[in-house]
């Protein structure tokens, strides 16, 4: 389970090197922009994976926590705070709000949990729209400075207004997120998450404190979502209610399900593939969304486990092929 076959390791190594040197070969600023936003969405989708994929709780407030992070960073940096202080604070604020929501929401299960969190998401959206003194209302908060430069010996300060700097910032946070999630998921604690997903009554009977466990998973997921939102604010330089809308949640949900739920790479693959497909479909103009809607249905019917599920099947075939080869070798 923990050791990967050699060709998977090679692939991961190749991807890592490719990612590291991406600014050298990315064709234009448009492609670069898509890569940056996809990485950013990959962070948020991965954290949604923790609560939905691993813990089995369909939180439809996830986009709202992303938005909370964006707003906190926007408000604080506008008030003169350093981005590097605002970012962790945004995570903590989202965790706090999430704790409050969890007190109500974790009384319910299944569809009911989804709807209660959806309602909280809508309420947060409306607050962002209407609390003009703080959130700027529909205009939002705009004209944000990019992240505070980091003073660096010998090289001088690293500025974050350029695309390469933004790229490495997002890439670093994504790798950190994946590392943390990997550690969490494959810990004893992670196993209790999955126990709840698979059978909550049973987990309860085994002495797992399901309420506390779900709350911890929710807190981690919300913290990371808010961090992603905070970075989003500094990269875009403007935050408006669309950053906290239900559409953000739906997008993450689509990325996650089509990428492959309950697998770490699935969330990343989904967050990359869908926006890129959407960009390729631009040539269809009026018919683009028509096609995309049909595509969603088709993919979910034929790849119920998402793209990564499909890849896994191929992978297993390769392993089987290699094993049959080696066994033939040993026979010979």
């Amino acid at each position: 389970m923990f050791t990967k076959p050699i060709h998977t390791k090679l692939l991961l190594g190749f991807l890592f090197i490719a990612a590291l040197f991406l600014p050298l070969y990315v064709p234009d600023s448009y492609m670069f922009q898509i890569v940056i936003t996809s990485l950013l969405f990959a962070i948020a989708t991965s954290s949604m994976n923790l609560i939905l994929g691993y813990t089995g709780q369909a939180s439809l407030a996830h986009g709202a926590f992303f938005g909370v992070g964006a707003y906190v960073v926007a408000i604080m940096t506008k008030a003169g705070w350093s981005f590097w202080i605002a970012l962790p604070v945004s995570g903590l604020v989202a965790t706090g709000i999430g704790f409050f929501i969890g007190l109500f929401a974790f009384r319910t299960r299944g569809h009911f949990f989804a709807i209660v969190t959806l309602c909280f998401g809508v309420i947060l959206f409306q607050v962002a729209e209407n609390w003009i003194e703080v959130t700027g209302g529909q205009n939002g908060i705009f004209g944000l400075d990019s992240a505070t430069p980091i003073p660096f010996p010998f090289f001088g300060p690293i500025e974050f207004s350029s695309q390469p700097a933004q790229y490495y910032l997002v890439l670093a946070v994504l790798l950190l997120t994946l590392f943390v999630l990997h550690r969490v998921v494959y810990s004893i604690f992670g196993l209790t998450f999955m126990a709840i997903r698979n059978n909550e009554e049973l987990a309860d009977a085994l002495g797992i404190n399901t309420f506390a466990t779900k709350m911890v998973s929710f807190a981690i997921a919300n913290f990371i979502a808010a961090i992603a939102g905070g970075i989003y604010a500094t990269i875009l330089g403007a935050v408006s209610p669309s950053a906290i809308s239900i559409m953000i949640t739906f997008n993450f949900l689509i990325f996650l399900i089509l990428g492959g739920m309950a697998t770490l790479p699935g969330a990343v693959i989904g967050a990359f593939m869908i926006p890129i497909i959407m960009e390729f479909l631009q040539f269809m103009e009026n018919y683009r969304m028509l096609f995309f809607g049909a595509l969603l249905v088709v993919v979910i019917i034929w790849f119920p486990m998402g793209f990564f599920g499909g890849l896994k099947t191929i992978n297993q075939k390769i392993i089987a092929w290699r094993q049959s080869n080696t066994s033939e070798d040993s026979n010979a």
């Binding site: 448009y30 936003t37 875009l236």
Partner: peptide, 22 residues
Amino acid sequence: KTYDDHIDPTAAVNNARRLRSR
């Protein structure tokens, strides 16, 4: 050249990048 952003800031920035560089 026209692109749809359905009032999504992310899409608008992507489109602007695309319009400028492509």
